[in-house]
Each structure stands twice: as C-alpha cells, then as structure tokens.
C-alpha cells in the first residue's frame, strides 16, 4: 500500500513537472510569435532582398501555423535538440552550457551573501526593534531595495576598481587568461582550482567580488527585511515570554526558539531569491560585462531568437522547479511536523 502510494505520488510530481514545462514553453512560444520583432530580419539583416528574406522565412518554418511550429519544437526537444541560436550561430545547448555557469556563479555567491549577512542583520533588527541597530538595518535594506542596481554597479566599479584598484574590472576574467583553463564545470573558479591554475582562480575571484556583492545587496536587503518581520512575529508569541520567564539565556531564546520557528518561511524566501537571481540580472550583467543567461535571454528576446529564448526559459523553469524541490526537502529537515 505504502509503495503504491509513493509511486502515485512520484507519478503525480512527474506529471505536474511535464505539464509545467509544456505550459512554460507553450506560453513563451506564443508570446514570442506575437512579438513584433522579426526573427528573419535578425538573420538576414534589414537590407536583405525579398528573395533572401522569403528563403529564410521558409527555412525557419514560419509559413506554418504557430501550433505546428510549436509541435515541431517539442519533437526536437524530445530528441534532446534545443535548436540553434540565430544570434550566436551555436547550438542553444552549447550556449546555455557557456552562459548559465556564469550566472550560477554570480547568483550563488550573491545568495550566500544574502544568507550569511542578511539573516543576522534581520535578527538583530528584530531583537532591537525601534532602536539604532534596527534603523541601520532599515537604511541598508532600503539602499539595497531602492538604489538602481545599474547605478550602484557603476559607482562600485568607480571606487573599488578604478580608484582603489582592489578588485578587477568588468568581465569574468582578464583577457590574457581566456582559453587557458579547459571548461569542465563552466564555473571559472572551480575549473581553475581543479587545474591548479591559482593565478586564474585569483583573477576570476577578483572579477566576481564586485558584481556578486552588488547583486548580493538586493538579496541581502530582501532577506534581512523578511527575517526581521518573521522574527518579530515569533518574538511576540507567548512561548517566547514563557522561555524568558523561565530564565532561559537570551541567545537561546532568539536562536534556539524564535529563529528555529522562522526557518521554514526563510527557506521559502531564500529559495525564491536564489531562483530569481538565477534568471539572471540583466543590468548587473551589462554593467559588469558578465556573459550570463540574463543577457543571453534578453538579447535573444529582442531579436526574436525563439530557440534561444525557449532554451533559456527551460533552464530558468528547471531552476525554479529544482529549488522548489530542494526547499521541500529542507522543510522536512527543519520542521519535524512535516516529517511526520
């Protein structure tokens, strides 16, 4: 009985996953086809003769109804072929393998910054509600929320790269190091470390610090504010009062009782933050010339490069699904009620 129930549950999850991806690609496909940008002109250029234009129009299958085009795409997808990008002339899968790790690297460091700085900040603000630590956290969060990331990036580059020279400038790596390390994971720091190229590791880290920090301020601001709000809610509960009356040390009250009870909510917030960063932050990627998935999808969208847009959408969708599943697992770890 238990096995059957488990199988039904797995089947349910798989069906839901399949429907999610079909829905995601179908909606993206239809929106893409409704956009006024002309994918043929993206290939042939605006000066092309009508003859050349028509030739490519037919090659792309644009003469067929949208649903047929979509079904053809799905057919291709089932065979593991994401098609070729118009803008890069490369298979979309190769592009994703090249662009996604850059975003993964950036988003992961930014999220870690959000977690390890944002959560203590949020707890501090909640514990000292209305006093100066709370005000400081509010100001920092406000900056993280409201300062345009483009502006923040340029100012940071000006100070830490141009004036102080503490970090490297735009790009993932100095050009002289390009192509030296064989991409295994696509995450430069890991690849460099694996090959024992410590100069390159150092250079890659130096390039990563600034964009990751800038992107991290957004994650930090959000996580800090949400942590504060969740913690305030818990700190006003009667069980906290009881713990304090019983003489429990304050740090145990805060971290052992109140904080443990906000973990489930925090996991959701962190998961959503991470997933949104994995979509790619176009502005951060632009300022820092970071060849990530955000720029890739945006450029492709502007050029109606549907194979690339759909490939990117599938990756982003997979990230959301994967992070949701991970969150579900983590809920079980931190909340005994769910385990039961």
């Amino acid at each position: 009985m238990a096995l059957q129930s488990k199988l039904t549950s797995i089947l349910g999850v798989l069906t839901s996953l399949l429907l999610t991806f079909i829905g995601l690609t179908a909606i993206t496909f239809v929106i893409g086809r409704m956009m006024p940008a002309d994918p043929v002109l993206a290939i042939v250029g605006d000066r092309a003769s009508q003859e050349v234009y028509d030739q490519v129009y037919l090659q792309l299958g644009l003469d067929k109804p949208v649903y047929i085009q979509y079904l053809r795409y799905l057919e291709q997808l089932v065979e593991g072929d994401l098609g070729t990008s118009i803008m890069t002339a490369q298979p979309v899968l190769d592009d994703i393998i090249r662009f996604f790790p850059a975003t993964l690297e950036l988003a992961t460091i930014a999220t870690l910054l959000g977690i390890f700085v944002g959560i203590p900040m949020g707890v501090l603000a909640a514990v000292h509600q209305g006093r100066w630590p709370d005000h400081i956290v509010r100001v920092i969060s406000l900056i993280g929320y409201s300062a345009p990331i483009f502006w923040l990036g340029m100012v940071a580059l000006l100070i830490f790269y141009a004036n102080l020279g503490w970090v490297a400038g735009p790009g993932r790596l100095d050009v002289y190091y390009d192509g030296i390390v064989e991409p295994t994971t696509g995450i430069l720091m890991i690849d460099a470390a694996m090959s024992g190229e410590w100069d390159i590791f150092h250079n890659a880290l130096s390039h990563l610090v600034l964009p990751a920090t800038i992107l991290g301020t957004f994650a930090l601001a959000y996580i800090a504010r949400m942590t504060r709000s969740f913690m305030l809610d818990q700190l006003n509960q009667e069980y906290i009062l009881t713990a304090r009356v019983k003489g429990m040390p304050e740090h145990k009250v805060i971290w052992g009782h109140a904080f443990r009870n906000v973990l489930v909510q925090l996991i959701t917030i962190i998961g959503l933050t991470y997933a949104s960063l994995l979509e790619g932050s176009v502005l951060t990627e632009t300022v820092f010339s970071w060849p990530g998935i955000g720029q890739y999808i945006t450029n492709s969208l502007f050029n109606n490069d549907m194979n690339a847009v759909l490939g990117g959408t599938i990756v982003v969708g997979a990230c959301f699904v994967g992070i949701n599943m991970l969150s579900d697992l983590l809920y079980r770890l931190v909340d005994p009620r769910i385990r039961k």
Binding site: Y161, G165, W166, V167, A168, G169, D174, Y176, H202, N203, L205, S206, H207, V209
Partner: peptide, 11 residues
C-alpha cells in the same frame, strides 16, 4: 590571502 591583501586588481 585574497582577503588579507585585498582582492587585487588585474595586471
């Protein structure tokens, strides 16, 4: 080392 000496810019 990186943390101790600052990130160090490119050449």
């Amino acid at each position: 080392v990186l943390a101790a000496f600052g990130m160090g810019s490119s050449q």
